[in-house]
Design a protein around this nucleic acid. Structure first.
Lengths: 225, 225
DNA sequence: GTTTTAATATGATAATTATCATGTTTTATG
DNA sequence: CATAAAACATGATAATTATCATATTAAAAC
């Protein structure tokens, strides 16, 4: 099993703020896992007894609404941590995590991480910084949800995925989502998401290769109203 | 000027995790302020060079959208801290803070607080816990915005204000908001918010005394669809 | 206290989005 | 490879919400 102190992934998250000794301790109690696409990693109400460090792959964080829709709140990609929030609040999870493709993760038990959070101010301050950014993003999503049209939100979602998660060699978005996923990010009916994407295609803003989407006119998407 | 180490307000926020020595140091550099209703405490893009500890009164945190609406993201009440997020991220503010009534606050300069965040793990962990709760609330708002109707959101807003901020002796909500404020919390047009509130009144769910709103049927509001 | 301004209220209509129905294409499975 | 199942697509229609117009009431300013 890989050693945390040598793992390159931690450069992308707060674990980089840990000392070599702390990393070695964590390395000894962590477990590596492969998670298949579609697997529910944890669901709302679960006690998540630790933190996942995502070495590869992508997952969605979502919450079931009373109307049966599964609103996607955030996506967690390679390099990021998963499950810190409920761990810090010492609560069961508020969200469900589902793998969007095959994932490689390391699971670090709660007790180890909590000890470091309480003893290493550099680490806890770094986690705090990450959480402050998450909160800012969440605030911005609230504003978008409240004030922008489905068309705008979907255009911005495409741009966000493009900019934050990158593209494949052929230019298609590296994150492959179903139309239903898009609808659940934007907060609309699946049919509406399909309709808007079809329109974007007609307007030459995007093209599709199978289920893969390629942004053809980024500035056009930015101008969508 | 009051002394932080003796101030009762800190029991309601993370400042309680500071040591007596730290509190005395902060006490010496803090400034007390009275803020009049309607005053913009800071706006989007401002460098907020410290944290406000709200001793009395309420303010709204909002963000201007491109369509001209000022979406309210959160309300900060007596006992809470204001401005920590942008301070921690070391960024200009993402939100505007506006006093909803006359406020009493203490302003603690950034340098003092940052030093404590980096040196006192108990304090930074407490701030982290608060921020984790803020993030959870924000996630829940995203889900509500995306999946619930204006009627439902407005009903839940009334319930939230009732439960979290309390009522006056006559039973009316202690937080006095304009119809426009309600619209900007719910993310709808002012006319729509007015219409829904009128309907709630007709349905006997609420009553009004001037601009003050009283919840008459809490369970009824919970059942709104 | 009157005038002016802002906030609240309501109707009419338009725009947006959801829902239901149904067909097609793609993917999974025996 | 045939068949079932899921995902995608599109039309018709209904429901929700926004916008514009216009009163009415309340609050602020002179």
């Amino acid at each position: 099993m890989g050693k945390c102190e040598q793992c390159i992934i931690k450069q992308f998250n707060s674990l980089k703020a840990l000392t070599k000794d702390e990393l070695m301790r964590i390395s000894n109690c962590k477990t590596s896992q492969t998670i298949k696409k579609g697997t529910v990693i944890f669901e709302e109400g679960d006690s998540v007894n630790g933190v996942y460090c995502v070495k590869d792959g992508i997952c969605k964080l979502s919450k079931l609404s009373e109307n049966g829709k599964d609103q996607i709140v955030k996506m967690v990609v390679k390099g990021q941590l998963l499950g810190q929030r409920s761990l810090i609040s010492d609560e069961t999870s508020n969200l469900q995590a589902t793998a969007l493709n095959d994932m490689e993760v390391c699971f670090i038990p709660k007790s180890e991480i909590i000890a470091d959070l309480q003893n290493n101010p550099k680490f806890s301050f770094d986690v705090l910084k990450e959480m402050a950014l998450d909160l800012k993003e969440a605030d911005d999503i609230i504003v978008n949800m409240a004030q922008k049209s489905v068309r705008q939100r979907l255009a911005e979602t495409l741009i966000h995925i493009h900019n934050s998660f990158g593209v494949n060699p052929d230019g298609t978005l590296s994150v492959l989502l179903s139309r239903e996923d898009f609808a659940n990010i934007v907060g609309t009916a699946t049919e509406s998401a399909i309709r808007v994407l079809s329109q974007f295609k007609k307007d030459g803003l995007i093209s599709t290769v199978g289920k893969h989407i390629k942004i053809e006119d980024l500035n056009g998407l930015k101008r969508v109203e």
